[in-house]
Amino acid sequence: MTTLMPIRLHNNLLHPVREWLEGIEIHNRKLAHFLCKAIPAQCPFERDIQLFGRKLFHIPPMCKLNPLYEQVVSLRFRALCFLADQCGEDVTVYC
């Protein structure tokens, strides 16, 4: 039971930040563009390490270790939807 205590405490401390990120509404084109540029579409840490054209090993996407990953990805998605639906912009440049 003591091993679960740090996980629960960690989740409780981040709960207000999660709620804040989930509550952000996008109503500004500049903010939406900034979020789409600042939050990558794919994890930038995921890589295949190759030597002489042969794959030695794969580094998995470590972004999912981020406890706020789901909220940040959701924020980016909401920004993309705002640009596409409300502003009528082509968002393929961000995909």
Rank of each mutant, 00 (worst) to 15 (best):
H27E: 12
L14I: 11
P61G: 04
E25F: 02
P44E: 07
C81Y: 06
F52W: 01
V72I: 13
Q71C: 06
T92V: 04
S74L: 03
L21R: 09
L68H: 06
V72D: 06
A84D: 04
E19P: 09
A79H: 03
Y69M: 03
P44S: 05
P40E: 03
P40T: 03
F57S: 10
C95Q: 02
L83H: 04
L13E: 15
P60K: 07
Q50T: 14
P6N: 05
R18G: 15
C63T: 09
I59V: 15
E22C: 14
F45T: 09
P16G: 10
F45H: 13
V72N: 05
M1C: 03
I49V: 02
S74P: 00
N28A: 14
F82P: 05
K64D: 01
I59W: 14
R18V: 14
L56E: 06
K64G: 01
H33W: 11
L35Y: 06
T3P: 15
C63W: 14
P67G: 02
L83E: 02
S74M: 02
C95D: 02
H27R: 11
P44Y: 12
F82E: 06
A32M: 11
L13N: 14
K37W: 13
K37G: 12
P6R: 05
F82R: 04
K55M: 08
L68K: 02
V17Q: 15
L56C: 03
A32C: 11
E89R: 06
K30M: 13
V91I: 00
L65M: 11
E70D: 11
I49Q: 01
T92Y: 01
C95N: 04
T92I: 01
Q86G: 07
Q71N: 11
N28Q: 15
C95P: 00
Q71F: 10
P67C: 01
V73E: 07
L31T: 11
M1L: 03
M62R: 15
F45K: 11
R29D: 13
Y94A: 02
L14M: 10
D48I: 08
T2V: 12
L31N: 09
G23A: 13
N28W: 14
F34S: 06
Q71P: 07
N66Y: 12
L35N: 01
F52Y: 01
L31C: 05
